[in-house]
């Protein structure tokens, strides 16, 4: 059993004058879905290309499934599956032939290949349409087929670069369900880049946030939320007039205040005592019907992390 599925150490990549990755260091445990988040141009795709040995680092090193990305790239590509920026399907060929080709490429024996193609296409709900050229398919169907292609040879590690980007809500949800089911049944390690925080929160047990090629934070989604230290107090009531809001803003633990339609949202620093704030509101003449303490969402944590250094 491998100790680590991915091990990246001080990985740096320069493209002429641009530094795409800057001493990136992280580890991915086997058997988990690892989310790799970052704004556009943060270095996510470059990292995936380096993990596949498609790009050489300027300095640093990375190991994937125990293989070195510079000297053992062929071994890495043999036991991983990758869904990159584009789905990579041959749209003039039918769905079955697309999988057949990559089954042959992965040297799967004929009977095993046929059975696996049927199994995956059935699971994805595409078996009945296997003889159709994929060019007429919806984007969601193509993405599902691409996912089936990635999982075809039962890779130990799957690298997915924004697999639900550009899909409508039902299609994205369907791809996520398929991914969740397949990962659960086959125990594959997944390295997933996404812009969708709900997706990351739902699928990932570990998340890393990257910006300008540098690692900003890493941990379980709950840990990241806790580490961000910020919390939100939501109060439902009335009388949230400007002098009341000014009194709140004057408090040092209050970072931001927003009132709308009887809802008051107060962003707090870590040390805030919400009971004191509720007392203050009442003393200022506001009526409080309900008060809820909420931790920051992953999206807020992400925005804080990527905007901190801006």
């Amino acid at each position: 059993m491998l100790n680590l599925a991915i091990e990246i150490e001080n990985l740096t990549c320069d493209f002429e004058t641009v530094r795409a990755l800057d001493k990136l260091t992280l580890e991915v445990q086997p058997g988990i879905v690892f989310g790799f988040l970052g704004p556009n141009g943060a270095g996510k795709t470059t990292t995936i290309r380096m993990l596949l040995g498609l790009l050489q680092p300027t300095s640093g090193r990375a190991r994937v499934l125990g293989y070195d990305t510079q000297s053992q790239a062929a071994e890495i590509r043999a036991c991983t599956g990758a869904l990159l920026e584009h789905h990579g399907l041959y749209e003039q060929m039918n769905a079955y032939d697309n999988l057949e080709f990559y089954g042959r490429v992965n040297r799967m024996p004929t009977s095993e290949r046929q059975a696996r193609i049927q199994e995956l296409l059935t699971q994805m709900g595409l078996w009945e349409r296997r003889a159709e050229a994929t060019k007429k398919w919806s984007r969601g169907m193509k993405q599902k087929l691409a996912l089936a292609r990635v999982l075809l040879h039962r890779p130990a590690l799957v690298l997915l670069d924004e697999p639900t980007a550009g899909l409508d809500v039902p299609s994205a949800n369907s791809v996520r369900n398929d991914l969740e089911a397949l990962v659960a049944s086959e125990g594959t390690t997944v390295f997933l880049t996404t812009h969708n925080m709900a997706e990351a929160e739902r699928l990932c047990s570990q998340i890393a946030v990257i910006k300008d090629g540098q690692l900003q934070a890493i941990g379980h989604p709950d840990e990241l939320r806790a580490r961000s230290g910020s919390a939100q107090l939501e109060i439902i009531g009335s009388g949230f007039i400007e002098p009341v809001l000014e009194a709140l803003r004057a408090r040092p633990e209050v970072m931001a205040v927003q009132a709308q339609n009887g809802h008051l949202k107060i962003n707090l620093s870590a040390q805030a005592d919400s009971a004191e704030l509720v007392s203050l509101l009442v003393s200022q003449g506001a009526k409080v019907r309900e008060a809820r303490h909420q931790s920051a969402s992953l999206e807020e944590v992400f925005l804080t992390l990527v905007e901190e250094t801006r």
């Binding site: 990159l84 920026e85 399907l89 041959y90």
Partner: peptide, 14 residues
């Protein structure tokens, strides 16, 4: 042109 090159290069083919 068809955006299939990178996927092919990411396969195990030498």
């Amino acid at each position: 042109e068809r955006h299939t090159l990178e996927t092919l290069l990411a396969s195990r083919l030498p």
